[in-house]
Write a protein that binds this DNA or RNA. Structure first.
Lengths: 156, 156
DNA sequence: CATAAAATGATAATGATTATCAATAACTTG
DNA sequence: CAAGTTATTGATAATCATTATCATTTTATG
């Protein structure tokens, strides 16, 4: 009944309609991102993609991630360990909106979605106000908390 | 009447009590940070410090900034242009608490403090809740909005 | 299938940040 | 205040994530 609709192909239209082409490498990167739930670096992604599509080069992974981030399909984060981390934007998957708790010591990241409704509500309002006041077209936001995780506190 | 108290020496105690030494280089870096109101990169700071204290090396600027950030006297930001940006933590100066609006295109940064009271209030509450739930000692937070500034929108 | 344009892989280049290490300066103690 | 201990420094080499280059291969299209 569902015809030829493929759940894992939702991004094809998004790419196509902007003139980008569908390639095996891009498919593989998105596949890895869809199936992983955590904060992968470009190299993490490269290694995972390499297993299912050995032909891919690291540069293409970077290029794809850059493109997807530009399009808003992927979020790019800096958790302070010297390399960017990527995750699929929500809306595309089971994932719910969440923010991050980052350990300044071991750089571990905890996802949380407590208080998210209130946060998002306030952010929406703030966004609207800032947009008008500063004539700025806001497309996204970032909230993170920093500190020391339980494990790191024990060790000292 | 104010005796020998020097407004520009408030950080000496903070360093001393942790066993760090007061040096001309550190003084100069803090001086530059205190007098500047914008988002300087390490090299920006190096160049400005170099004018008043030519002996300093770039590595020392990096080391000092790292130290100050570690101590919480300085905030370190990533605005997406490939280099870290630093500003003096508030509390030390005229500066008021503010957050940032970052242009994804030209990487310009606008400071704002509209809605700050509400934001801070919510953050405080969230912080408390997260601390308990995840056994995480939170020391700071980050909020940024991203989008396209008015100038960049005109140009396209 | 032929064509034009986009995308790729391999790799060199870039550039911010860090590590190294001998020399120097800051604090401490007598 | 001199001597000693140790943190700090400057110069520079090393690191390493990310980008640029470019000849070659793929993709989409008619």
């Amino acid at each position: 009944m569902t015809g030829s609709y493929r759940e894992d192909m939702w991004w094809h239209g998004r790419l196509r309609c902007r003139g980008y082409r569908i390639t095996a490498g891009r498919d593989a990167v998105l596949d890895v991102l869809t199936k992983s739930d955590a904060h992968l670096s470009a190299e993490d992604i490269y290694m995972r993609v390499h297993r299912i599509y050995p032909g891919i080069g690291l540069a293409s992974v970077y290029r794809t991630l850059e493109l997807l981030a530009q399009m808003g399909l992927v979020y790019k984060f800096d958790f302070g360990d010297g390399r960017a981390r990527y995750e699929l934007a929500e809306g595309s998957k089971k994932d719910q909106h969440h923010h991050h708790l980052v350990c300044n010591n071991c750089h571990k990241v905890i996802d949380y979605n407590d208080f998210i409704e209130e946060e998002v509500e306030l952010l929406k309002k703030t966004e609207k106000g800032l947009s008008r006041k500063y004539d700025f077209q806001i497309t996204s936001h970032l909230i993170q908390f920093y500190g020391i995780c339980a494990d790191c506190r024990k060790q000292e």
